[in-house]
């Protein structure tokens, strides 16, 4: 009995080591979204481009779509940008853009230079919609199902690997759901 007491520190440490090991498997900077499996939040943004369409809650749903948060000042956004043109072309998957905490002329010039893959781009200079979506950095990408519910959030630039292994399989699965 008394000997067992002396084992307590060792047992506690073994438990701790397990948790520390778990800690190594994930990126501490990534925050899970509170929106998962909930309807997309209420928001209504004016269009970024002259003659273009704005973005609001009702525009989501009807079909599976992506919502991408981007800004012209955001370097990783530029890095991921080419992938969206590919996605719209190859997958016939609509992508909606939220232009986040940006200035209109710069954002317009950015899209002009790099191409505009977005079906609609909402302009959100003062983070109104961003706060509703719980955005804490750019880029962020959400997958929204046909009922307008948010099913997945990805933080940071999307590259080929994430697209192929995570996003597209999910999109296919959601398309098969009734």
């Amino acid at each position: 009995m008394k000997r067992a007491l002396f084992l307590i520190p060792l047992l506690l440490f073994i438990g701790l080591a397990g948790y520390l090991g778990f800690g190594l498997t994930r990126d501490a900077r990534i925050l899970p979204s509170t929106l998962i499996d909930k309807p997309a939040p209420d928001f209504d943004l004016p269009p970024l481009l002259p003659g273009g369409q704005g973005l609001k809650t009702a525009d989501l749903g009807g079909q599976v779509s992506l919502v991408n948060v981007f800004a012209s000042w955001c370097v990783p956004c530029r890095a991921e940008h080419p992938i969206w043109a590919k996605v719209t072309k190859d997958e016939r998957l609509p992508i909606y853009g939220i232009n986040w905490k940006d200035k209109r002329p710069q954002a317009q010039a950015w899209l002009e230079q790099l191409g505009n893959p977005y079906a609609r781009v909402g302009f959100d200079p003062d983070n109104k919609a961003g706060i509703e979506w719980g955005v804490y950095g750019a880029p962020e990408t959400y997958v929204v199902d046909r009922n307008g519910r948010v099913r997945f959030k990805y933080v940071g630039p999307v590259f080929e690997e994430t697209l192929k292994n995570t996003i597209l399989p999910l999109v296919r699965k959601l398309r098969e759901e009734s």
Binding site: F6, P9, F13, I14, A17
Partner: peptide, 14 residues
């Protein structure tokens, strides 16, 4: 280091 020393502790300290 920690696991080893605490195991030694559990063994010898009593």
């Amino acid at each position: 280091a920690i696991g080893g020393s605490l195991a030694l502790y559990a063994w010898r300290a009593p």
